[in-house]
């Protein structure tokens, strides 16, 4: 093998093994950092793992938002119209957070309650997060919602 070919071979081997290692590490990091999505019904049935970061999507149930008068603590129910999950959160809620609106919360289950570290409501009132659509479809309540909600 002439030196030029040899160099090219080394470079290609280096590239392939480098990329292989990188992809392997990336996949490992992915497996450690994905957040699974659950519907309120799945949580009510105990299908969701506790102590692991997960996401829950649904509608904010009417008349369930309660605020602590002294602090920024707030609690509300997320529903797919079959089951509700009680969510507690401390911090500022997004501008589009409202009763009867779709919401996705990220956090952990702790003693039957969902302790949210992040509350996401989308910034277009006609937009429904796909996870919420999915949750409502699974509970069979999507059509009834779509009456009042443009998609």
């Amino acid at each position: 093998m002439n030196p030029k070919r040899k160099q090219r071979l080394f470079i290609i081997l280096g590239l392939v093994s480098g990329l292989g290692v990188a992809v392997g590490l990336v996949m490992y990091a992915l497996s450690q950092n994905i957040n699974l999505f659950f519907t309120p019904s799945q949580i009510a049935k105990g299908e969701a793992p506790s102590a692991q970061m997960i996401r829950v999507g649904g509608m904010v149930a009417d008349g369930t938002v309660e605020r602590d008068p002294q602090s920024l603590k707030v609690a509300f129910d997320v529903t797919d119209f079959d089951h509700n999950v009680r969510v507690t959160y401390e911090g500022i809620l997004p501008d589009l957070f409202r009763e009867g609106q779709g919401v996705v919360v990220q956090g952990r289950i702790n003693q039957g309650q969902f302790v949210a570290s992040e509350v996401l409501a989308k910034h277009d009132e006609n937009y429904m997060p796909p996870e919420v659509t999915e949750a409502l479809r699974q509970s069979g309540k999507l059509d009834q919602m779509m009456g009042g909600q443009k998609q």
């Binding site: 992915l30 994905i34 999505f37």
Partner: peptide, 28 residues
């Protein structure tokens, strides 16, 4: 570029093979 692409498309990929809804967040 490849790792950002993988992280971005991974949820689509998992959904497509029926693995449910997942999200990949800033920690990754």
């Amino acid at each position: 570029a490849v790792s950002v692409l993988l992280g971005t498309l991974y949820p689509l990929f998992v959904d497509a093979i029926g693995g449910g809804k997942v999200s990949v967040g800033p920690p990754f």
